[in-house]
Each structure stands twice: as C-alpha cells, then as structure tokens.
Amino acid sequence: MTDAIDTRLSNAGVVLPVAAAPAANYVPYVVFGSLLQTSGQLPIDGGKVAVTGKLGVDVTLDDGQAAARYCAINILAQAKAALGGDLTRIVRLLKLTVFVASSPDFTEQHKVANGASDFLVAILGDAGKHSRSAVGVTALPMDAAVEIEALFEIR
C-alpha cells in the first residue's frame, strides 16, 4: 500500500513536507491505542501560510479549496511522522474537522472542505473515506483561511 500511496502522491505532483513543529505549547499529534489524532493543520506551503483571509470577503471558493488541500497535505505529513514514515499503518481516516474563516453570510464551508476530502480519498483510496464537520469561524491563527484536524484508525 505504501507504493500505492507514494504513487498516488507522485501522480498528484505532491511531495510531503517535513511535518511542522508546533508553534506553541501543544504536540502536533497524539497516538492513543489504535487512534492517531492530529492537531489542526494550516495551509502551509513552503514555510508560510499559502491562503489567508476570509471566505466570502477576500478569498474565493477555489482558493479556499486549495487551502483545504494544503491542510490535507500537512495532515499526511504529520501522520507520516507519527507512524515512523509508514503511511500503510493507516487503516482508515475516520473524521476531518474543518474550520473555515468566513464572513457571517458565507454558507459554503462544506464546499471548501471538499478540497481536503477529495484529495485524501484520491490519495488513500477507500481508507480515505471519512465523516466530516465543516464549521465557519471568525478568525484562525496567522489569518489562515482554513484549519483542519484529522482522526485516523491505525495499526
């Protein structure tokens, strides 16, 4: 399966970054039993927040979906770090919680979340099918447009 995941990442033109270190007093992930919980991941690309602002104000739906995809890439980077580099230990992505910085009248948080969901299913296959919450918030750290946390079942 690692070959399949690596092949899918390569075909998508994605090289997983080194997992980001925490920016405050927390850990980037926690493994407990057969579960792996990641801390919220921002749309970091090349060491900086790639998409800032609010949906419905100064960020388009397409840019919001791109931000969600960056978050998903960083989730996989954290999972890889947590699992000693072995993504084949992922049994299933159980849940994504997607936070979208948005104006009060923006109601397409679920469409923004599709940027992460579609990417993770494409990379993980059936193991990437998950439950999800998409929530609008007034602001996120470093003015990020999106932040996403994930819960995996692992072996």
Rank of each mutant, 00 (worst) to 15 (best):
D58G: 06
F119E: 12
L42M: 14
Q109D: 03
V51F: 06
D86I: 02
P43A: 04
A127I: 04
L9E: 06
V121E: 15
I73M: 04
C71N: 07
S34C: 06
G40I: 01
S133G: 08
G47M: 00
L96K: 06
K48I: 07
A82V: 08
Q41L: 10
V146R: 02
Y29H: 13
S133Y: 08
V135F: 03
D58N: 15
P17D: 00
L83Q: 11
R132A: 14
N25L: 09
G125V: 12
P22Y: 01
L83C: 11
E149L: 11
L120T: 10
L124P: 10
I73N: 03
R89F: 00
Q41R: 15
R69N: 13
G56A: 09
S117Y: 10
H130V: 06
T38K: 02
D45K: 15
Q41Y: 07
D143S: 10
A79H: 07
V18F: 02
A82C: 09
G13V: 04
A21V: 10
G47S: 04
V51H: 01
L55F: 07
A20L: 12
G115C: 09
T52E: 09
K48D: 05
L120W: 08
A134S: 15
F32A: 15
L35I: 09
D143I: 01
L140F: 01
V49Y: 02
A20V: 05
P141C: 04
Q78R: 13
G64S: 09
L36D: 02
V135H: 05
